[in-house]
Amino acid sequence: MKNKTILVVTMSLLLFVTFSCIASEISWSITVNKSDSLRQLIGLPSIAVGNLNPSARNPGLEIICTSLYDSPGGYCYYFTPGVPVSNITIFANVTLDGTK
């Protein structure tokens, strides 16, 4: 095997990988910019991918997911910090000495 062969093989593979990346990016940008009427109509935030619990598609769902696992679009993470609309300050005053 000549020295050049190693470089040619490497360059060919790099070209293949780069081409795949460009094709993938173009394909996704078309998908993203294309109007999707079905998703507009239905409005479900997640995809048809199964999870550890049967509430996979549920944007609202049984609390059981907190004990098993979360699902895409599920609400388990609703209870994690940083949710902008949770207002649970009422609980802060329900202590014996009233301190927060």
Binding site: S46, P59, G60, P72, Y75, V85, S86
Partner: peptide
């Protein structure tokens, strides 16, 4: 909207965070 009793309000941002984390 979260003033509505017995309701849960979820924004798109929260769902996005959940998906990415998952």
């Amino acid at each position: 909207i979260s003033d509505i009793p017995n309701s849960r309000v979820v924004t798109k941002d929260v769902l996005l965070q959940a998906q990415q984390t998952t």
